[in-house]
Amino acid sequence: MPQRFGRPGLLGTVARTAAVSATATAVSNRVNRRMGEREMRHQMDAQAQQQAWMDQGAAQAAAPPAPPAPPAAPAVPAARDRVSQLSALADLKAQGLLSDEEFATEKARILSS
């Protein structure tokens, strides 16, 4: 049989088409399988996270209530606090940051509280 040169014949075209089709099918199947595996991992992660939340909620429900907080430290006596506020106010007035009216207003507010 004489050998042809140039474009492939019918049999060569069919063979090339079959090879291309088989390659495309293999690639498509692999892509679909990897996407399915990835989706399965995402679902498993979501289920594990949901289970952890449920376990945490059950543990909190079963745990006894937290003990009450210890009482706060006794407050600084009001007289000492007022003195420090008045002292700071006098310093501001001495620096010239407060006018006489502002000083008198703030002094009255501190002494009335």
Rank of each mutant, 00 (worst) to 15 (best):
M1E: 15
P2W: 03
P2A: 12
G6P: 05
L10A: 12
L10F: 08
G12P: 03
T13R: 14
T17I: 03
T17M: 04
T17L: 13
A18H: 05
A19S: 12
A19L: 09
S21F: 02
S21P: 00
T23W: 07
A24H: 03
T25Q: 06
N29T: 09
R30N: 08
N32E: 02
R33C: 00
E37A: 07
R38Q: 14
E39M: 10
E39K: 05
M40S: 13
M40T: 15
R41M: 03
H42E: 13
H42R: 14
Q43G: 05
M44I: 09
A46M: 11
Q47Y: 00
A48W: 01
Q50M: 11
Q51L: 06
W53K: 03
Q56S: 13
G57Q: 15
A58I: 07
A58P: 02
A59Y: 05
A62V: 06
A62W: 07
A63V: 11
P64N: 08
P65H: 04
P65V: 13
P68C: 05
P70K: 05
P71F: 02
A73C: 02
A73K: 08
A75K: 08
A75P: 13
A75V: 11
A75G: 07
V76T: 15
A78Q: 14
A79M: 08
R80K: 12
D81C: 08
D81M: 10
D81Q: 15
D81Y: 04
R82E: 00
R82L: 00
R82S: 00
Q85P: 02
L86Q: 02
S87G: 14
L89F: 01
A90K: 11
A94F: 00
G96A: 08
L98P: 03
S99W: 03
T105M: 10
A108Q: 15
A108T: 14
I110N: 02
I110A: 05
